[in-house]
Design a protein around this nucleic acid. Sequence first.
RNA 1: GGCAUCGUGGCCGAGGGGCUAGGCACCGGUCUGCAAAACCGUUUACUCCGGUUCGAAUCCGGACGAUGCCUCCA
Length: 492
Amino acid sequence: MELHKTQQLQIYNSLSKKKETFTPIHEGAIGMYVCGPTVYSNVHLGNCRTFLSFDLVFRYLKHLGFKVRYVRNITDAGHLENDADSGEDRIAKKARIEEIEPMEVVQRYTIDFHNTMAKFNALPPSIEPTATGHIIEQIGIIEEILKKGFAYERNGSVYFDVLKFNESHQYGKLSGRNLEDMIANSRELEGQSDKKNPQDFALWKRAEPQHIMRWTSPWSDGFPGWHLECTAMSTKYLGEQFDIHGGGMDLKFPHHECEIAQSEAFCSKTPVNYWMHANMLTLNGQKMAKSTGNNILPNEIFSGENTVLAKPFSPTVTKFFMYQAHYRSILDFSSDALEAAEKGYNRLMDAINQLDKLPTGNETTMDIAAWKQSCYDAMNDDFNSPILIAQLFEAAKFINSVKDAKASITAEDLATLKTTLHAFVFDVLGLQEVAAGSQNTGKLSGAVELLIQLRNEARANKDFATSDKIRDELATIGIQLKDGKDGTTFSL
RNA sequence: GGCAUCGUGGCCGAGGGGCUAGGCACCGGUCUGCAAAACCGUUUACUCCGGUUCGAAUCCGGACGAUGCCUCCA
């Protein structure tokens, strides 16, 4: 029997601001849409946190035995830097700066995004559609919304009529805003605008002559509005109503609000049952953002080439660090916090590596079944990875106690412990063993092994001057020797 | 200014009316030729002021502070 029939999942729904028992529209199958990146520059760590949060969701839902269709888009159409009919298309801007085609920009940073997510061991989504690949679908939706009277055309652009929509629907229900307040607080738009009201948003924009990324439409040669692509692609691949829609907290307003409005205007149905928002990753207490430059690139973390961290950290440690915080909490990125996470991660992995060497006995001095359920309870409670990890450390402590003969475990319970640990650590959290290393490290380890051997000979002869010299000189190079019961190991 | 979220021990971070996670650091122990590493054990807490309650870090109100959104952003 599938696990989801016995494990009851609670999800915090941004729409109701409450945890709700999760029930999919179709039993056993889930449709999930997550807003992907705009590919006009390298994906930064803040972006990654959101996608890793939803990778955890995807992995756990699959672990529970659901059939999940996970759609995550690539925004590759050029959208303007601001909404005031001025500003440049950011992809075209990058293309101009780098003197390449806009689609080269898109290609380059899409590849960077995929490479980076692969380093983090994130699973690829089931479908990864692009905005430019769905221009026809977007035009179709605009035509329908125009027909329903919730949009108007001005000078080749089409705008969504928010005030009109609000007469019969509720605009702002996701982000907790009401339209009257927004109108009262709205600023005058700079420059000229074709909009009837500042709250209206573009479904289609007529392209200025210098605008490179453009497509033919019934209204003008132009490009689709930003919010529309998600409505078009989620509807196409998941249907007019689907289970989960995710994205970063910063997309809640206006992006997701506009998506809801478009869908409701288009097909008169509430599109999403469970809205999930991942919180921001901050750096120096401020949100990471491409536009402000307050960000760090994943590769800068892995290589150590940055001004923030004392040393390099592997992708899996970086991910483990993120999962020690709940996805709905703001997480601040710092060297100290990462170092603490790395030590904890190593301890956990060392314990897991002990599993195969563990002696078994006639009784188990820990309630394995209760522990296992507590792992599920943690994840069932709105994907609470910090609690799950706390439970994993409880298991690590127990493993070490068994190793020291201070506790015992039966062969049967050991099998359960091992299966459960592997399921949560590798399948659900998607952590990885740190790679064994290249050929060069193979040669290096041979050399260090030789030094260890020489040191041990010196120690046997009580020639501590020599043995300490080997140990200390290696330490200054950055190679640490670790004397254990079963001999000496080293770490770089 | 409006709308939200949040303020937890040296640090990071869960929890959420009485049973008070976890990681890192510190300290104590085991181990060691001495160390380090590893392992085990352990201390320190809920921004402030009111209120509700037998009891509040947890609920309510207020103050102060932080962050996010209100213009593109995960």
